[in-house]
Design a protein around this nucleic acid. Structure first.
Lengths: 228, 228
DNA sequence: CAAATATAATAGTATTACTATCATGATACG
DNA sequence: CGTATCATGATAGTAATACTATTATATTTG
């Protein structure tokens, strides 16, 4: 999809930032290096001060763009989900066969990012790692409901619902399309994490990726006639 | 199971604590009130100082029992998984029918805790909430591999493997028993979370609990003849 | 060229997650 | 019974965090 995306910009909820990081050079460097740093040292150890040092800028300047590191994480993950949604819609758009369509969709959302540097300052592979390791932390807080009301998770939610609709398109009698959709998304992140850190808790590894596991599980259920 | 557990003690990896909280009155109060507080204000906002105030004790005294709040969270979640494992083994032990056995197992691990105060100072219902909301934070860190090596997750891992074995017992040709087991455990926590905070991303609610969703999904797959 | 704007530098604050030290009160044991 | 040991408490201190506020300087724009 390299060529095609040349003039696309992924839109992110404006509340995640004070000043749009896409609007300046410093902003882009903040995003670029925050991805590198969070991937490297983890979200807990990541601070705006360290980031400032890394990019030869000042802590206080970073605060002009992002209110807090939580909001920056929101920005990054929203960007990721928006980007994934774009890839999903783009790849499944022309497909009329509903099963083929869902298969493609599952492939897109469960696959590890390989290389896709259309957005020069965003390393999608590392961003994928960050989502695997840190995304849960953006909603596992006491502020979820407030954040949710303000729309911080809307892209992610839309993605789950899109998947859910594709599931319904295959079997409108299946009683758990949304749970299945959310299981695919979240479960895939989890399987990727296990692959890296708890290999004894997953059957997924190099040749046997989460994608296959989920495609098998989902289609066995949707092709079955069991109406529970 | 009330009567039967009277003299049972759930064993937790000794590395999680400095001094066994079960060994003293203060220790038990620390555990009891940390559960109440973490549930109420969330792990991020929870501090040993606040806990000290709550129980009329001193911050420094709490540090005699737990090295850090991370370790306390480890202690609490290990206790929870140990307790769940006990319930699982206890409830499935006599069952010879493999399908009935797995059904029972899924029920145990995916169901919300109702009331089970055999351990007077531990509120299992709130602890269940804590596991839903905070457990991921104990492994989504840069220290996972080190912590894992030291055995902090052994009970949880054993639980996943037990489930995995029950799956194999039903269909030894199924290629993803461990992934299915880990999906049940983690996915169930996730569905419970969604129920509370993102109702639009799940089909689970009062009458339609995660248990049913997982039993249906798992057995449709294991009863099928599709060998992928 | 002046005004506005972006960034940098510096300082300061409350809180956190501890560590260290010393005091006190309870208990155990010889 | 007296003393040593141990558990707990009180206080102080530290480095780091997650910011806010203020002022200075450099850059852009009108």
């Amino acid at each position: 999809m390299d060529r095609l995306l040349g003039n696309i910009k992924i839109t992110v909820n404006e509340k995640t930032y004070i000043k749009d990081p896409e609007s300046s050079d410093l902003g882009k460097r903040i995003v670029e290096y925050s991805i590198l740093m969070i991937d490297e040292i983890g979200f807990e150890n990541f601070t705006f001060k360290k980031l400032g040092n890394q990019i030869g800028s000042n802590e206080s300047s970073i605060y002009r763009y992002f209110e807090s590191k939580q909001k920056l994480l929101m920005y990054l993950s929203s960007w990721y989900w928006g980007w994934l949604e774009y890839k999903l819609v783009f790849a499944t758009n022309g497909i009329s066969d509903v099963k083929e369509k869902l298969t493609k969709a599952i492939e897109i959302v469960t696959m590890t990012t390989v290389k896709d540097s259309v957005f020069s300052h965003i390393n999608e592979i590392l961003l994928n790692n960050i989502v695997i390791n840190e995304f849960s932390k953006s909603y596992l807080t006491k502020e979820v409901d407030a954040k949710n009301k303000e729309g911080y998770f809307s892209v992610y939610k839309r993605l789950v619902r899109r998947l859910g609709e594709m599931i319904i398109d295959i079997d409108e009698t299946y009683p758990y399309p949304l749970s299945m959709a959310s299981t695919i998304l979240e479960g895939s992140l989890h399987q990727h994490f296990l692959k890296e850190h708890f290999a004894s808790l997953t059957d997924c590894h190099k040749d046997k990726q989460p994608t296959k596991y989920f495609v098998d599980l989902v289609f066995t259920r949707l092709n079955s006639n069991s109406h529970v």
